[in-house]
Amino acid sequence: MKKPLRSRARQQRSLSVRLDAWLGHHRDSALLTLQRLSKAPLAAAMTVAAMAVALLLPASLYVLTDNLKALGGYWEGSAAISVFLQPGIEETTAADLATQWQARSDITRAQVVSRAQGLKEFREYSGLGVALDQLTENPLPVVIAVNPAPQIISETQLTHLITGLEQITEVDFTRLDTEWARRLQALVKLLERALWLLSLALAAGVLLVVGNTIRLEIENQRDEIEVMHLVGATTGFIRRPFLYSGAWYGLLSGVAAWAMVWLAVVLMQIPADRLAESYQSVFHVRALGPLASVLLIGGGAALGILGSWIAVEHHLGTMRARR
């Protein structure tokens, strides 16, 4: 039998008809699988919950490091610089300097710590009380405590401010305690590395969970798959509903993980407010940004599809071999 020659118009029509049918099957698969999910809500919820927890761990670690970073920058910016004046500079001169500095745009506050006050604090914190009593005169210089303006955030800006201060003749030296900030940075780096490793391990976990669920679905629909094969369904056609199933699981678990992170952030805001209040400042706990949200939910869906694909390939293969 020779196929009759088709006209171009007919070929185009048949292409658009086939595309239409193909899109129709996608829509049907998406709806059918969603329907199936809703028919066994408890089983579906268990799978989604297991996947959501696996997604939640890296997501919350991300939020934690993100906030630590923000906090680091925030505190670094508001770090106080202790400016030690040359020995012999009187407190009146220091007061003049402080007023002058306070007028600068890159400094919020400049406060003179008198020599007597300095000694008092030193006595309290050093534990050298009796030894200090032996001194006939106060050896401490006058100090001005400087708070940089909020817009001084980066390290270069801060260094610039400090070197500027050190060039003033009355100034002996300055001290900025940034050691803890550097440690925090190192900690954040460590956490970020852990985040990547954890993400990989948990992504594998998500694949296993969704793969196992899809495997059960395939087992339950063994007869249906068999019949589909017999009436001439392609592997792609048979695979499609399972991929949608996986996509739904992934999408739902991504949304669930996102919601849990959001809830955690809301719950953290109250103690964070209290903490910030004790420092007389404001700190907003950062939730997942738009990009991270899309990545979490989209990543969940992608993992769902991938896990489902692997399961379908493996189990359809073994079904064929058994026939």
Binding site: D20, G24, H25, D223, M228, L230, V231, A233
Partner: peptide, 22 residues
């Protein structure tokens, strides 16, 4: 070899659905 959870119509339609008909 009928699918028990599909209607008679859906069962009969199966070969056409897999062949990509509207």
């Amino acid at each position: 070899h009928l699918l028990p959870n599909r209607t008679v119509f859906e069962n009969v339609a199966l070969p056409l659905v897999v062949a990509g008909m509207t």
